[in-house]
């Protein structure tokens, strides 16, 4: 099920993002365009650099179990 609505979601599910553990990442067109520990900083960065684009944003868990 890959279409423009689910493209970034499907790509995220199928790939490994350990290099960004414990960070928020912003994805545009199946590419990580930014990563920060603070979501507000990340959103500002993306707004400044990719005017008008709305990225997919998600937190990459650290390599540990969560409650």
């Amino acid at each position: 099920m890959s279409n423009t609505r689910t493209t970034n979601y499907d790509w995220y599910i199928e790939n490994n993002f350990n290099e960004y553990a414990s960070e928020w990442i912003a994805i545009i067109n199946k590419r990580v365009v930014g990563h920060e520990k603070n979501i507000k900083t990340l959103i500002k960065f993306v707004q400044d650099k990719y005017h008008g684009k709305k990225p997919a944003i998600t937190k990459v868990e650290g390599m540990h179990k969560i409650l």
Partner: peptide, 16 residues
């Protein structure tokens, strides 16, 4: 581990 991730939108931004 396997984590159930939804696809949602808040103010135009997608989140998982």
């Amino acid at each position: 581990t396997y984590r159930p991730k939804a696809l949602i939108e808040i103010e135009g931004n997608q989140f998982f």
